[in-house]
Amino acid sequence: MEIGGLFTALLFGAIIGGLGRLVMPGRQHISLLATVLVGIVAALLGTAAATALGVADTPGIDWIELALQVGLAGAGVTLWSTRSRRKLPH
């Protein structure tokens, strides 16, 4: 992977992860790094799902693909947040 591709993956991961955090109610206790990682995974999985559904390469903005990515990021943020919450001592 070239440095440009790595930078692009980090940027899109941060955007998708941030949008995923915004769509979930309440406060999520996860780090910026975890948000970016969840966003990268959600972007990849959302693109794969959109490709499988045949909606990945449409003219203009791929709204269905973006919705899949943000939805997966929201689910990933929730899973990460609940997983990390269980590890905290009470």
Rank of each mutant, 00 (worst) to 15 (best):
H90F: 07
R83V: 15
A73F: 10
A14P: 05
L33K: 02
A50R: 07
L66N: 06
L53M: 15
A43C: 10
E65T: 13
I16H: 07
I16N: 06
G5P: 00
L11K: 01
V41R: 02
I3Q: 04
L68W: 05
L53N: 10
A48F: 05
A49F: 10
L72T: 03
A56R: 15
G71L: 06
G20Y: 06
L33R: 04
L33Q: 03
L32P: 00
G20C: 07
M24G: 02
A43I: 01
I15Q: 06
T82P: 00
I3E: 06
L10P: 07
I15T: 11
L19V: 11
V36N: 01
A50N: 03
G46Q: 05
G60E: 12
V77M: 14
M24I: 01
G26W: 05
I61S: 09
G20A: 04
A52H: 08
H90I: 11
S31N: 04
R27I: 00
L72E: 05
L22E: 12
V55K: 08
F12I: 11
F7T: 00
L19I: 11
A43L: 04
G17W: 13
G26R: 06
L72V: 06
M1Y: 07
I30V: 11
I40E: 00
G26N: 02
P59K: 08
R83Y: 14
E65R: 15
L45C: 09
V36F: 01
V36A: 06
V41D: 04
A43K: 01
A42L: 07
M24W: 11
Q28M: 03
T8I: 02
M24N: 03
I16G: 05
H90G: 13
L45H: 04
H90V: 14
T82D: 13
H90W: 12
G5T: 08
M1H: 10
T78K: 14
M1A: 10
V23C: 02
A73E: 10
V41T: 08
I30F: 03
E2H: 08
V23P: 10
T82W: 15
G46L: 07
V36W: 01
V70E: 07
G13D: 01
R27D: 08
L66K: 09
L68V: 11
A73T: 09
